[in-house]
Each structure stands twice: as structure tokens, then as C-alpha cells.
Design a protein around this nucleic acid. Structure first.
Lengths: 216, 216
DNA sequence: CGAATTATTGAAACATGTCAAGGATCGTGG
DNA sequence: CCACGATCCTTGACATGTTTCAATAATTCG
């Protein structure tokens, strides 16, 4: 946590959730935005849960670890998305900023109409998690990467040039692969003229239909 | 859908969710219970979503398919649990009874305090899905089966003798394995004197600590 | 009892992981 | 601005866990 600024007037680059997020902001007691540097911990496993978190800009990852240190990233969250939901009083994940990210804390207002605007956001996150179950359980490495890129494309509203704020290890831990495999599959898609890799943190989709066909 | 009976007085064998489910029933307009025979469709992908479903007895599976027919079971639901959540107006899964199951339909009451009692249940399902992401993404076949059995043990309130209402293919499609691998791992656990298989649909845990150690 | 379904088991194939080396990129300090 | 070290990424060769294919056994249902 580095700086506190007030971005209250800032437009949300959110898409489908924009309407719901607005409703939420109307009922919550929005605080100032906190700026997190790359790889900062936003909350840790075991921390008290309660407030929600709205990504103003940047990207966030939600992680869990096994006893022997293997990591699973349950979700990435981008600008306009809300995270921090727990069914009990304690966080079961830890949340970290991927790149430099601005996060607005949403505390529950006293008049608790909050639940009504919170539910759709929780259900959206549930739906995303369920989509991801299919990817992890039943898709091979190529299909996983293709699904990941298409999801990014949709959430970035960018048809062709995607930014990959996270590093290869993050992608691997999100998709249940190793970073070597992520690297190899990206290479394969590049060789197949489906994507290009202008920089290490950018992907340009040059054959979207082919990418969609790869998704299984 | 076969028979309509009214089980309204029946006690719920639910554990952690029991309190929340009671609150939900108080606000919803509970209908009679519908009895589904084995492998009946409760709702299909694309059906209109809206009402929730409470499992009175039996077991339910939520499934998705890839274009080429691979299946992922997102969740099993047992007595006392609620399913059917969607963030939009349409079902993204299909729900089927595993064995003979009784399902109560919960329609939204006019006074919509419903959201407040629904949110905890949605969050519980989100939490389960997230737990399962770790299993699918980062655990090997043995760990997956161990985690599955321990989850069953917890939800059945049975320390030692578990019933497996679903067949091997269902377990496989839930854990991202093939049914042959499920069979082999069960055999391995049996040979290691961690479980016994008195019948094809029962597992007796005879070394619980060992099973817990296997979970990673 | 017999047929159909479901489960078990084995052998071989394959996708992904592991280990290892080299190359690119980034940040820092001279 | 360049050089250096650290980190991250790429690529290759080999190992391995899981799948695939196939045959047999057990179970269920009519």
C-alpha cells in the first residue's frame, strides 16, 4: 500500500458489470483508492474478510497454495471488477497486485441494501470460476492457452492487441500448467500464424477464428 | 419429473448451511418437492434461469460439455444444499439427478429480501468452486481422489462409511480424470489399507489420517 | 438366467512435466 | 548512457503420470 488518492470521478472501463458496479457504489461507502505496487499483497489468507475490493486500474490475482507450495491462481481481476467475496469471516485466498494497481475498498453501508447489488457480482464470479473448471478439468494445454487469450480479449475490449500484465508463471498457475509449457504453446500459436508476440507482455491475435476453433 | 409430494415438514440433513437455508425458506415461496428418477434432467443448458433448487434428498450433478463432447461436472449437490444460481437469465449448465432425488423449487417471493439469504449460499458455492479449482489445476490423480473422498466424508457427516451414489464416470468427469484412472487409484488406496470397498457404491475409510496426508 | 451396462486391469502411446542450458529483458549503479 | 547482475523467458532432451485401447470381470436389470 503506497498512496491514497481519490479517483471517485474516474470512469470505469468495465463492460458487462458496469451497471451493477454503479449500483454497488451507490449503496456502499466507497473509500479512496489505494495504489499497490507490482506484486504487493492486498490481503492474505486468514485475514478478516468483509469489505469488497473494486479494481480501478491494473490487474489482481487471487491465489491459493497447497501444503507443499504448489500455487493455483483462482482468478485474475481487471479494471471494473469486484473481488474479495467470502462465505465466512476469513479470507481463503490471498490477493496480490499483478502490476501497479488501484483498488477501491467498498465497506458495507449501514442500510444493508448492499446485498442486492452484491449478489450479481458474486454470481458473475461464480460463473467465471465454473467456466474455469471446464478449462482446468477437460482442456489440453493448447485449448487452455486459447481460452485464456480469448477471455483476455473479451475483458480488455481489445480485438487484436492484448496486454499480458502477468508473467508466464502466473499464466501457468492459472491454467494448471508449467511456465515452460505456456512458453511452448505460445510459440506454437505464433508458428501457426494465429498470434504474434510483439513484446513479451503483448499478444496480437492475427487469426481470431482459428483461436476460437482451438478452444474445444 | 415424476411425482409431486409435499415434504415441507421434513428435517434437513444439512450441516453448515442449515441455518441459511431456513432463512431462505422463510422468504421464498417453497413449492412441493419433485421426485426425479436416476439420471433425469432437472434443467438444461439454455433453459431460463431464476428459481433456485433445494436438494431434499439424493444427489445432483451440474455439468457442462465441450463442443466435442467432453464433460466437466462443476459440482455435486447433496441434501440440504441449494443450486441453480446464474448471473444472467439463462442456465449455463445442465443439472441432472445422480440417483433418485427430491428437489424443492424455490421461487422468488414478492418482497425481495430474498437476496440477503441467497447471497451466503451463492458465496458458499463460489467457495466450493474455488476449492475445486486448486484440485483440478494442481493436484495429481491420487490427491484428487483423496480430496474427493474427504469432501464426501465431510458433507455426509459420516466419518468412515461413505456412499458413492455416482458412478465412476461421474467421479472422473468431476476430477478431470478418466474412469479407468479413478478405478486404478481406488484400487491403490485399497491396497494401501487406507480404504475398503465393501460394495461398488460404498467406500469405508479405514485410515483417515493417511487419506488426509494424501491431499497435498 | 441372459443381456446390457458398469467396473477392473493390463500394455502401449502420448502429452506434459522435469531438468538443464542459453538468451532476452529489466532495473540499478557507475 | 552503458554495463552488470538478477530475473524472466525460451528451447531442448529426457522422464513420467495419465490416457488410450483392449480384454475380462462384476453388477444391474429385465
Amino acid at each position: 500500500m503506497l498512496i491514497q488518492t481519490d479517483f471517485r470521478q474516474q470512469a470505469h472501463p468495465s463492460r458487462a458489470d458496469g451497471f451493477v458496479v454503479s449500483a454497488l457504489l451507490a449503496h456502499a461507502r466507497p473509500c479512496a483508492v489505494t495504489l499497490y505496487a507490482e506484486n504487493s499483497v492486498i490481503y492474505a489468507q486468514g485475514d478478516a474478510a468483509g469489505p469488497l475490493y473494486l479494481v480501478e486500474f491494473g490487474a489482481v490475482r487471487l491465489c491459493r497454495l497447497t501444503a507443499d507450495g504448489r500455487r493455483q491462481i483462482s482468478a485474475f481481476h481487471f479494471a471494473g471488477e469486484v473481488f474479495g467475496f467470502e462465505f465466512d469471516a476469513e479470507h481463503h485466498h490471498f490477493a496480490e497486485s499483478v502490476d501497479s494497481a488501484g483498488i477501491r475498498l467498498l465497506r458495507r453501508a449501514v442500510d444493508d441494501h448492499l446485498a442486492e447489488s452484491v449478489l450479481p457480482l458474486a454470481l458473475r464470479n461464480l460463473s467465471r470460476a465454473q467456466d474455469h473448471l471446464l478449462v482446468l478439468g477437460r482442456q489440453n494445454a493448447t485449448e487452455k492457452i486459447a481460452a485464456f487469450l480469448l477471455d483476455l480479449a473479451e475483458r480488455q475490449d481489445a480485438d487484436t492487441l492484448l496486454s499480458l500484465p502477468m508473467q508466464r508463471t502466473d499464466i501457468a498457475d492459472y491454467l494448471g500448467l508449467t511456465f515452460e509449457t505456456v512458453s511452448r504453446i505460445l510459440r506454437k500459436l505464433k508458428d501457426a500464424r494465429i498470434i504474434q508476440l510483439p513484446t513479451i507482455k503483448q499478444v496480437e491475435v492475427i487469426n481470431l477464428p482459428a483461436l476460437e476453433r482451438l478452444c474445444g
